[in-house]
């Protein structure tokens, strides 16, 4: 079947089997390998993308769900539109060492950006609850939580300008 959607700001039309997962479509057909498949059972969160602005696990999402929707992947995450700057959340992860091997990072970032966009003044407890669906085997989460708090504050500050 043919589906049309907006992918990272660009109109996109693809021909897919209905039994295609969005994670597979992105990685194999569209060559966007920033979205990772970790557990493939919707527990680890390495595959999180934004569907119409909401965080979803692309390994548990069928391609037909994209039709008419807007999809944002890690490749589309950026600072000011059109700039080469990284998103404030990406900057915060670099600044506060919120990553080591980097495998979970795209999913962490997508979840974190959605979390911060939904609620401007996040507490540490809310960040930890919000990251429940994202597993990191390197960091022990401490620096990820610090990064998300800092990134959320930076997103807030940028909005106020």
């Amino acid at each position: 079947m043919q589906i049309s959607f907006t992918l990272n700001g660009r109109p996109t039309t693809v021909d897919v089997e209905p039994a295609t997962l969005v994670a597979e479509l992105l990685r194999e057909q569209l060559n966007l390998t920033g979205t990772h498949i970790g557990c493939d059972t919707s527990q680890c969160g390495a595959c999180v993308v934004h569907l119409d602005g909401l965080p979803v696990k692309s390994c548990t999402l069928l391609a037909p769900a994209l039709d008419g929707a807007t999809l944002l992947t890690i490749e589309g995450l950026q600072g000011a539109p059109g700039s080469n700057l990284m998103h404030p959340m990406q900057e915060a992860f670099r600044e506060h060492h919120g990553l080591q091997c980097g495998f979970c990072t795209p999913g962490m970032l997508m979840t974190a950006v959605a979390l911060a966009a939904e609620k401007p003044d996040l507490t540490e407890a809310e960040v930890r609850h919000g990251l429940e669906g994202n597993i990191c085997r390197c960091t022990g989460y401490q620096n990820i939580v610090v990064s998300v708090m800092a990134g959320a504050a930076a997103m807030n500050a940028a909005k106020g300008e």
Partner: peptide, 21 residues
């Protein structure tokens, strides 16, 4: 010291290029 890591940029922007990529 906590030096900035050179590899972080690509990991943060989805260009890590892991084996399965």
């Amino acid at each position: 010291a906590a030096p900035k890591r050179k590899e972080d940029q690509r990991f943060l922007t989805g260009r890590g290029n892991y084996v399965s990529d």
